[in-house]
């Protein structure tokens, strides 16, 4: 499903090019559960943003289902994010002025909507799935960390995407809450969703089927 070859990313700071990814080659099959590990600054988040079509590499190609997404337009990449990719962040990234329900509903604003079921029904179904059916009117500020992250997962999963990308999803949670979050990822994985998760926690990474480790912008280990 995903095929990366020779991905190079560098940032420009005060005119100097700082390399972050130095030639990443990676294939991820449909339904895989992959974890990306590595110390901070190793480029794992940068890789995730490229995978999520939010950022473009300087060099290299990224084929998503055979489509070169590096050279696609903003419109096309936005459509991919809306319909096929879900994001989960370490800091949850919910919109504070919207209720839980509205946060989960958000992707429908931008997606094509090929499902005939009413939006409300679909949103409620996924909120029930993450166990927050009694909280739909709450604002993010009224939720606990675990509840916020479950809301974020519901938002990532509501369009039934092929790919869910998670950036340190348990990083801000205690281990018990983190464990429940990981269970949710397993649930979606079991339904056939491809999951790529960035983490620096070995125990969290062990939930994945495949693990890669980045160091200084290169893949230094691969284990399945």
């Amino acid at each position: 499903m995903i095929k990366l070859s020779g991905i190079v990313k560098e940032y420009h700071i005060a005119g100097d090019a700082i390399p972050v990814l130095r030639g990443i080659d990676l294939s991820v099959g449909r339904g895989d559960f992959l974890s990306i590990m590595g110390p901070s600054g190793s480029g794992k988040s940068s890789l995730l943003y490229i995978l999520g079509c939010l950022d473009r590499p300087v060099r290299g190609t990224y084929l998503l289902d055979g489509v070169d997404v590096c050279h696609a337009s903003d419109e096309e990449r936005s459509r991919l994010r809306a319909n096929q990719i879900g994001f989960v962040f370490q800091t949850f990234n919910l919109i504070p002025s919207l209720s839980l329900f509205e946060n989960v509903e958000l992707p429908f604003l931008y997606a094509d909507g090929d499902d005939d079921r009413p939006v409300k029904e679909r949103v409620m179904a996924v909120i029930e799935q993450v166990g927050l059916g009694d909280r739909i009117k709450h604002r993010p500020s009224e939720l606990s960390g675990g509840e916020m992250q479950r809301t974020a997962i519901a938002r990532a999963a509501v369009m039934n995407p092929k790919l869910i990308l998670a950036d340190e999803p348990t990083g801000n949670l205690d281990s018990e809450t983190g464990r429940r979050i990981l269970e949710l990822f397993h649930e979606f994985h079991a339904k056939g969703t491809t999951i790529i998760m960035v983490t620096h926690d070995r125990a969290v990474a062990s939930h994945a089927d495949t693990r890669i480790t980045l160091k200084d912008g290169k893949i230094v280990s691969f284990s399945a």
Partner: peptide, 16 residues
Amino acid sequence: TKEIGIRRAVGATRRD
């Protein structure tokens, strides 16, 4: 700014 980032992440185009 953060809200803009979130909306972009869930599929908003620049035009949106």
